[in-house]
Amino acid sequence: MVKKNWMFVSVKQAKPVIIIVMLVSFLSLWMLLPTRFANPASAGYSLESPRLAAKSLYKLDIGWPKFPKYFTGQVFGVAVDPVADIVYVAQRGESVSKVLMFTEHGYFLKGWNTTTIELPHGIFATNSSPAPSVWVTDVGNGKYGHTVKQYTPSGTLLQTLGTPGTPGSDLYPLQFDQPAEVFISRKGEMYIVDGDGGLNNRLIKLAEDFTITWVQGEKGVKPSQFYIPHSVTEDTVGRVWVADRGNKRLQVFDAASGEWLGSWDSCFTDDAPYSVRLTSDNKYFVVAQLNINRVIFLSVPPIGDIGNCLKVDTIQLADDVKPHLVDVSRKTGAIYVAEIGARQAQRYVPNIRK
């Protein structure tokens, strides 16, 4: 009798403990279930980490362009008209339009009907006086190659800088060897990086009347020397940035004098910089790295000492996409990437973060 009473009392006293244990177990299981189903290995699809997603500056616009079938060649360059909202895409291939025109909304406008472009490399659109125009660098070896050419927005050739079909290193008259890219500042001054693997390894600044302001560079690894200067841009405080592809670094020069100001190489141990452009808010450089299929964002230093390179964000593309050159819409903030391997151009838009 005593034994039964003792057992009865023990079970009765244990009920609250059992209930608490069951509640804790249930709550623990409930808390673990979302983690289980969010696991990519369990759910069968990839989810970006909320912590990383909060830091992403840009996201892919999957609806641009609306008709990608118009890409019929290898896409090497892209340029955005800052006023007319037109995106120009330079491509290579047999029997293809060397330049395609799209709106920023993704609608196809037209392809240029011109035979004066052989192998387009860089392309730049400007709306400066007296009329909008598009500049194309041509690295071909035929009768139109080794030049920087100015076209109307519809593709009519206006003028040619350089000696067509003749590679060389002379400056008077201008003579290029596979000029890689051109950039025109808001003042109308032009920067040309010459060249894309040819004899020349130099940065040239031209005034509005196309007279030479200054020249920097020769082949080498020292300051102010280049090995395949590939892209160029100017920031808002009077510095010129050059993607020195072969040397895996960005070099910086004073826009007025051409004086060397420094270089960055710590961000390019994995792959060289192929492009350099400013985001529309002027806070970051956009740099494509072709061999590792990556677009990175580097913090723009304030006026003065450029300091060290600081990477703030990355867009990792699929294998063999091969991003080459980029451009930025000053109006919408969108980034356009020319992709040689994927044979397309893609648009990335600012990611609105809460």
Rank of each mutant, 00 (worst) to 15 (best):
G262A: 09
T115C: 13
D320H: 02
L119H: 06
W64H: 09
K149P: 07
S275D: 08
C267A: 10
E218T: 11
F226V: 05
D244M: 03
T116C: 06
L290Y: 11
F176E: 06
T269C: 12
V75F: 09
Q251P: 00
F176V: 07
F176H: 11
V321M: 01
V11E: 02
R186C: 15
R343A: 13
L199C: 03
D265H: 12
R202P: 10
F285W: 10
Q316K: 05
T103Q: 14
P65L: 09
R294H: 12
D244L: 09
V134G: 13
F253N: 00
E48A: 14
L47E: 03
L27C: 07
T332N: 07
D209G: 07
W30M: 15
K110E: 10
I352Y: 04
N127T: 05
I292R: 00
L158M: 11
F124N: 06
A256Y: 05
A288T: 04
N5G: 07
D305P: 03
K15A: 15
I19F: 02
D244W: 01
G333W: 01
A255V: 01
V349C: 03
G217S: 00
V9R: 15
F124S: 02
Q225F: 03
M22S: 15
V287M: 07
R353G: 00
V80P: 09
L199N: 04
V87R: 02
I315F: 05
F108G: 01
Q175I: 12
G188H: 12
Y274L: 09
A318L: 04
S133H: 08
K98W: 05
S97L: 06
F76P: 09
V17M: 13
Y227C: 15
C309D: 05
D320M: 12
D320A: 09
T233H: 06
G44I: 00
P229F: 06
N201P: 13
F226H: 03
N201T: 14
K311M: 11
K55F: 11
V326G: 10
F76M: 00
A272F: 06
N39L: 13
G93N: 09
G162H: 09
V96Q: 09
T147L: 06
E181P: 02
S97N: 14
R330A: 07
P120Y: 00
L199A: 05
T233R: 03
I86C: 08
T236D: 04
Q346F: 07
V148E: 03
L33I: 08
V99M: 04
Y70H: 14
F37L: 09
V242S: 04
G162V: 08
